[in-house]
């Protein structure tokens, strides 16, 4: 096909093929350019907007990973260090200690440590957290809302279509620029 024979004119099929090939290449190039121009150059990752999140619990079960990439994050900056923490204790807790029967978290992923009277520090053990959002609901309802859910990017595989974003009833999960992959409570307002 590549042999050039000056006596033989180019065949119709070759002519059409070459034409389509050139047009096709130009179209693909144009399409790519249009996508770049209309889109942008920033990489995007999935993240939960904690102010839109309603803590429905879908995050724990609908992520494609066996262990959800969503975990509870604690912004200590805005935490009240309450002795009676709405995120740690269920409303009908028998007593305010670390007994398993008194914990709201189904996996015991929140550590409660005494700081000084009357303050307690609450920290998340990410290895245990399943992202169910029970503590977030409690903290948002009774406390400062310092507990919130975030997609952890050391676990997240950044699916083309995030399965939890599809099941999110409030549309809280959107693509965010990868330079700011977290939406941290208390950091969105200028200090």
């Amino acid at each position: 096909m590549s042999q050039k024979n000056p006596d033989k004119p180019i065949s119709r099929r070759d002519f059409i093929n070459t034409g389509v090939r050139i047009v096709g290449s130009v179209c693909l190039g144009g399409l790519g350019a249009a996508a770049i121009v209309k889109g942008g150059k920033r990489e995007m990752v999935w993240q939960i907007d904690p102010h839109v999140c309603v803590q429905c619990g879908n995050c724990a079960t609908t992520c494609v990973l066996n262990q959800s990439a969503v975990k509870c994050v604690h912004a200590h900056e805005i935490c009240g260090y309450c002795k009676l923490c709405g995120g740690y204790f269920p409303p009908d807790a028998e007593s305010l200690n670390t007994g398993a029967e008194n914990q709201l978290c189904p996996t015991g992923a929140i550590n409660r440590t005494f700081v000084e009277d009357p303050y307690f520090e609450y920290s998340i053990d990410e290895a245990l957290c399943i992202g169910c959002g029970k503590c977030v609901k409690g903290c948002s309802a009774f406390g400062n809302g310092s507990l919130f859910l975030q997609i952890r990017h050391d676990i997240c595989v950044n699916c083309n279509e995030c399965a939890i974003s599809r099941s999110c009833p409030s549309g809280a999960i959107t693509r965010q620029p990868s330079e700011q992959p977290y939406l941290i409570k208390g950091q969105e307002r200028p200090a």
Partner: peptide
Amino acid sequence: AQDRFPRP
């Protein structure tokens, strides 16, 4: 909700 309790 963020300012329900003072920060210690």
